[in-house]
Design a protein around this nucleic acid. Sequence first.
DNA 1: CGTGAATCCCTAACAGCGTTAGGTTCTACG
DNA 2: CGTAGAACCTAACGCTGTTAGGGATTCACG
Lengths: 195, 195
Amino acid sequence: MRDRRAERREATKAEILDAAWELVRAEGLATLSLRDLARKVGMQAPSLYSYFESKHAIYDAMFLQGNLELLRRYEALPEFDDPVDEFRSNARLFVGFTVEDPARAQLMFMRSIPGFEPSAETYGVAVRIVERGRERFKKLGVTKPEHFDLWTGIVSGLAFQQIANEPDTERWTRLADEAVDMFLGHINTKRGRAK
Amino acid sequence: MRDRRAERREATKAEILDAAWELVRAEGLATLSLRDLARKVGMQAPSLYSYFESKHAIYDAMFLQGNLELLRRYEALPEFDDPVDEFRSNARLFVGFTVEDPARAQLMFMRSIPGFEPSAETYGVAVRIVERGRERFKKLGVTKPEHFDLWTGIVSGLAFQQIANEPDTERWTRLADEAVDMFLGHINTKRGRAK
DNA sequence: CGTGAATCCCTAACAGCGTTAGGTTCTACG
DNA sequence: CGTAGAACCTAACGCTGTTAGGGATTCACG
């Protein structure tokens, strides 16, 4: 039989998280206050503690949601005949994910909440995302680990640069595509020389 | 005649900022509290307000110091015969600057203090640093503005990646050098094709 | 030298924060 | 219908940045 209580509880948790995302998107990540959040869902601040054990736990749940969403998108990427297309779509996916919600990116990729450390579960998903990328890279023939670091550095660098200034989609896609060309050009040259 | 009062005042301001840097390096950027800071210089918290009009003003002064230091280092770079060396030393300078004091980098390059906006003066120095880079780029034959953005994206991306993990100097210098090779290879290829 | 002004630093306090303690109201099941 | 427990409340604690206002020290000047 359905546990209606548990269902309602989960629904309320989801409602709190939705409200938190809204506030965070509107007012900024670190500006989020439990009293504001509680008011938005029609509660008093301490009542939130029956759903989350702390403010950090809320951030953690949001972090987890963000990671799951990002992983989902990576896994939803179509298969490409040309590896160049795969690199391109990967880069665009990440920069797009960052630009479309800078507060989320700040939570997930910059360590901008003072004492916050993600839980093991949340961290696990983040690791899975990176591992997935590493594996795809291997299958595409990029085997040196430094090249993966170079890649993540470039892509995240472009992403953060975009949210630092006012991001312009047409502009950053062009930049991202050029970065991909640059990167692939580089590793192909090295392969060429190695032969 | 010397204005002893003004001198003492400036000395105290400097002392406060030094203490702030120490606390920030030890405990983190956002963890800095005025009461802790005041205690470290032997005052009560409200007394700080006769030297800085707010906590943000302290961050701003630190931001300014950081920018002046970075500009100073850029200007202290020796002239190189080979442009490759100039790119290399530029990249190493920035990543090194970031890695040696992550809290400072967080203050200067990531927007991690909630309501903080740099003053016009502070912002001006930051702009001068970027402009200086742009000019050097032009003189070295890199004229397309997108290529400058690509460059700053790559370099800052690598820098932030390093402070996110535990930075290893030997490792990041290698990565930075390879990134420079990649970047120069890319723009040279494009120039070659264009001819 | 004495005096007025300016500077320096203090205590007390306010509103907001995350959080804890403890109590009340509602709800769903035996 | 009675009762266990979930859901939510109010009050309060210690922290934060910040303001108000007062006492002590220091300096320049008549």
